[in-house]
Amino acid sequence: MTLSLRTIVPAAVLVLLGLVPVIAGAIDEPFYIDLFSRMLILAIGASSLNLLLGYGGMVSFGHAVYLGIGAYVVGIFSFHSVEDGIEWMASGYVQIPAALIASAVFGLIIGAISLRTRGVYFIMITLAFAQMVYFLGVGIEYYGADDGLTLYGRSEFGDWLDLNESSTLYYVCFVALLLTLFVSYKLINSRFGIAIRSIKSNERRTRAIGIPSYRYRLTCFVIAATICGFAGALLANRTDFVSPDMMHWTRSGDLIIMVVLGGMGTLFGPLLGTVGFLLVEEILSSYTEYWQLFFGPLLILIVIFGKGGIDGLIQALANLVERKPKAAAQSRDGA
């Protein structure tokens, strides 16, 4: 297999992302580490959503909830570790697994009910559940309600891994992203992944050949929720703060935009989409406070005209590059 543009571009993006702390250090702009670590974390979230949207055909409109749940677990553990003096709750070795378990449990409950429905019902019910958890966050005064919860400290992993060091945190996120991409790759090419994709293209036939589609879809839903919860735990550490706003329904919308913008159902699409989305946000908002006035219509245009997202664009470019010599040769022959 020759290296195609579709592999080269994401690889280049990953290498650049890996170099961000070095570059930011060199030009003395530590702000960039912060900006790009957010990008990495959201790319993990978007990749997990891609398992549902792109491969499973499940349009979940409440995926940001798991970001919030993962983040809240870290926030709440940190809160109790100081307020009640329970030291082990400050440990990252406890917090991260707890965040994963909590988001898996929520994913299991929400998925088990939502997956009984189809189509629009599914979109709306996932949205409604997300809203429900959001209001739960808003309603609990004890953990700050609307105002959220400021972390007393980031997850503690011992001396060798100090998350307070911003470049360390950055590389943790980076490795987590690589891990997510690797797991996604393995998953979608496994027997399980093939079954999931087959359910997306024709559920009735898949069931007919003996694959219990509900269980497969639910498993996929829980896996996606768990990965996103992991991203949430990282997000809490990055921002030192958790609030219900993290799981506001517009955040779920943002995640969908990232996936679709990059290219649904492709391994690197969500990563490219997240990079694209955050860069557009950053650039537009540096020109005008009212950036969404332009971003909204831009989104509509992308939906109407841009099939396949950034990945599709790269593919089209690659086709153009490959065809060019041929076209030239043909015209020579003709002449």
Partner: peptide, 24 residues
């Protein structure tokens, strides 16, 4: 332009409309 698109496209485009109207 969205009637014959799938629901995901409709969700995204109308989400874009929300962003536009809120900012407007």
């Amino acid at each position: 332009r969205l009637y014959d698109r799938d629901h995901l496209d409709q969700v995204l485009a109308t989400f874009g409309l929300i962003l536009f109207f809120d900012e407007f």
